[in-house]
Design a protein around this nucleic acid. Structure first.
Lengths: 349, 349
DNA sequence: TGTTAGCACTCTAGTGGGTTGAGTGCTAAA
DNA sequence: TTTAGCACTCAACCCACTAGAGTGCTAACA
C-alpha cells in the first residue's frame, strides 16, 4: 500500500492541525477545515490506512488521530514546504539582533534570547570551540608570587583563561620572557598542538636560560595535566527561553518538565546533544531520534553557523515534537546566518 | 496578649512539622509528636491565640494551621537555634569543594552546584564585581585592522574582555605602545576611575606622539560610550539546582513555576535580587519581603563572601518560605566561608 | 470500484451526590 | 486553667451518570 497524494494531504492536514491545536484531529475537522473535496467517511478510511502504515496514531478509540514520530519524519522529509520569512520578519529579526555590542559571548547570549523569543521554543547555542581554532595571543599575568593567570586569545575572539599555580616563586621578568617566547612561537598554531609545537622549539630558544626553560615547561605540564581545563576547550553552551517549555501543553506534567530541565541544567549534556552529529547543514531530531530518553517528546533542530566557510558552532531549537517545523527551521537558518555574519566581524580573515 | 513560652513552643512545633511535611498541622499532631505535656484542646486554644496574633493561619476551616510569613519571621528572629554542621558534614562539603581548578568562574559555578545539591534549594551566586576592584593588566590585542580585543584583568582574577572597533586602521606597534602606556598608568587604579586617571596622564606621556594619543583617546571614548559594557561591570550571576524548585510541593503549580523561572532566567533580575541590600552578614527574606511579586512564596537567604575582609559578592539560597532555615543558613555560611577561603588564593594580598 | 451516509459502539471528560475523615470551636466539667 | 465531649465544617475521594466526539463497519450509491 503506497502513500498516494490524497493520503499525503490527509497526513499533512493532521499534522498542521495538531501542531496548531495540540488536540487529536478527527475526520470531520479535516473535512471541514481542509477542503480535500471528500467526506469524513473517506478520510476515515485514509486515516485507518495511515495508522496501519504507522504515520499516525490514536490516543484512545474515541479520540482523533495524532501524528506519530514516523509521521513527523515523513512530513519533514517529504511534505513540508519551506517557509520563507517575509521581508517584515527579516527586518524585525535583524533589527533585534545586537551586533558587535561587547564581546562574542554577549552576541551569542543575545542571539539565544532573540531566537527563543521569536519562536517560543528553547534556544540552545554551542559557542565557538577553541579546539580547531588558532592561537592569537598568550599572556601570562602574575597575580601572586606563585600564581599566574594565563589568558589565551584565539583567532576567533574566544578568550580562555586559566589560573596556574607555579611550583616556586618566579621573577616577573622571567615570566615576561616566557610570555614573549610563547607568543613568538605560538601565533597561528592550533590550541591542541600547542604543547607539541612548543616543546620542539623551546629547547632551541631557551637552552641558554635553564631557569626560564624550566618555568616554561612547568607551565606546559600544568596545562597538560589539568583535566578541568579541557572542558573549556569545548565551547560554552548558551540557553535562551527555557521558560517556553512550560508553555507547551504536552509538557504540563511535572515529571516530564523535571526531566527535561535536569538535562538543560547540565552543560555537558547539552554539548553532547548538539555535537553528536557531524552534518554541516540543518538537522532535525524528532522524538526518540534524540538519544536522551528525556527528549522522547521533544524535537531538536540544529544548524551550524560558520565563519569563512568553516562551521564553528551550532545553533539549536528545542521544542515539542509537535513543532512548527517549517517556520522553526527557516528562522533558525536565518538567525544562524546573521549570527555568522556578525561573527565574521570578529574573525581575522 | 503576649507570646509566652508555651505559645513559642507550639509555634515552633507547627513550623518544624510544616517544614518537614508541607501539610497543615493539627492540634492532635502536635500533642502526639511534640510532647508539650498538654492536651490537643489546650493546644487548640493556643493556636487560636497564635492565629489571632497573626503567626499562623488556616487554609480552610477544617484544616490544620500553617505558619504565616510573620510566624516564620518570628521563628527566624527569636526561636530558631543555630544548626551546627557536624564534623562529617563539614568534611563532606569540603571534599566536594573544587578548589583552584581552572579559573575563578569555574570555582563559583561549581560552588553553586555544590550548594544546591547539599540543600535541595536553588543556589544563586553573584560573582565578584569588577567595580571597586583594581586593575592589574590591560591588553590590547589586534584581531583585524580596525578591530581590537581589550582584555582587562582585575586584581581579583576577574577577566573582562570587550571588542573595540577603531575608527581607522592602526599599526600593530602603535597599539602595543598604547597597551604599554595604559599598563604603566593603570595598575592599581579602580576600573571606574580608569578614564579620569588616564586622561590626566596620557597628555604628558604621549603629547609628542599625536597619532597614538588620538588612538588612546578613541579607545577610552569607546569604553565610555558603550552602555552594554557597563553590564559586565556588575558581576556575573551563577545558578545551581534550579530543578530543585520543581521538587517542592508548594510549587506544583505551573503558573507559579513559570513565574519563578522567568525571573531566574533574567540575569539582571537576579542581580537586583541579590544586591538590594547592603548588609554584610546574612540576610533572610521571607515571602513578600522579597520585592518581586513572583517570590511571594519563596524565601531567599543570602550572605556575602569576602576576601581580605572585604565583601566582594553574595551567595544566596532560594527555596519555599517553608524552608529549613537553621540548616540552610548554616550550610550557606559555611560554603561562603570556604568559597572566601578558596578565592583568597586568587587574590593578590 | 471508490465514495458516502447511517448507525452502533467506545471512551474520555465533566458533573453531581454521597461519604469519609481530619480538624476545628465551643461548652461544660474537672 | 485544662480537658473531654460534641457538633460542625470542609476538602478530598469515590462513584455513577451523561454528553459528546470520534471511530469502524455496513450497505447503498455513482
Amino acid at each position: 500500500m503506497g502513500i498516494d497524494e490524497r493520503k499525503q494531504r490527509v497526513l499533512e492536514a493532521i499534522i498542521k492541525d495538531y501542531v496548531a491545536t495540540a488536540e487529536p484531529v478527527g475526520s470531520r475537522t479535516i473535512a471541514r477545515k481542509y477542503n480535500l473535496g471528500v467526506s469524513p467517511a473517506t478520510i476515515r478510511n485514509e486515516m485507518a490506512d495511515l495508522e496501519e502504515m504507522g504515520f499516525i496514531e490514536q490516543p484512545h478509540t474515541s479520540a482523533g488521530r495524532i501524528p506519530s514520530q514516523l509521521g513527523y519524519r515523513y512530513y519533514v522529509d517529504c511534505l513540508m514546504e519551506a517557509y520563507s520569512l517575509s521581508e517584515a520578519e527579516e527586518t524585525l529579526l535583524r533589527s533585534m539582533f545586537v551586533e558587535k555590542m561587547g564581546d562574542l559571548e554577549q552576541v551569542i547570549q543575545e542571539t539565544s534570547k532573540l531566537l527563543s523569543r521569536f519562536t517560543n521554543y528553547t534556544a540552545i547555542i554551542l559557542g565557538p570551540t577553541p579546539v580547531g581554532g588558532k592561537l592569537r595571543q598568550v599572556e601570562l599575568i602574575p597575580l601572586q608570587e606563585q600564581l599566574v593567570l594565563m589568558v589565551i586569545v584565539m583567532d576567533s575572539g574566544v578568550v580562555l583563561h586559566k589560573m596556574l599555580e607555579l611550583p616556586g616563586p618566579v621573577a616577573s621578568e622571567d615570566l615576561h620572557h616566557v610570555s614573549y617566547v610563547f607568543n613568538s612561537k605560538l601565533r597561528g598554531i592550533m590550541l591542541e598542538n600547542m604543547r607539541r609545537t612548543l616543546l620542539q622549539e623551546l629547547y632551541d630558544e631557551l637552552q641558554h636560560k635553564k631557569q626560564i626553560l624550566r618555568l616554561a615547561l612547568d607551565i606546559l605540564d600544568y596545562y597538560q595535566q589539568a583535566p578541568q581545563w579541557e572542558k573549556s576547550h569545548l565551547g560554552k553552551v548558551y540557553l535562551g527561553g527555557v521558560i517556553n517549555i512550560l508553555n507547551q501543553p504536552e509538557f504540563r506534567n511535572f515529571d516530564k518538565i523535571r526531566r527535561i530541565l535536569s538535562v538543560l541544567e547540565e552543560e555537558s549534556e547539552l554539548r553532547e546533544l548538539l555535537t553528536d552529529t557531524n552534518e554541516t547543514g540543518i538537522t532535525v531530531r524528532i522524538g526518540a531520534e534524540n538519544r536522551r530518553e528525556e527528549f522522547q517528546d521533544c524535537s531538536l533542530i540544529t544548524v551550524t553557523y560558520d565563519v569563512n566557510g568553516k562551521a564553528i558552532g551550532r545553533v539549536g531549537l528545542l521544542g515539542p515534537t509537535r513543532m512548527e517545523y517549517p517556520k522553526a527551521t527557516s528562522i533558525l537558518e536565518y538567525v544562524a546566518s546573521i549570527l555568522s555574519e556578525a561573527l565574521q566581524g570578529y574573525y581575522s580573515r
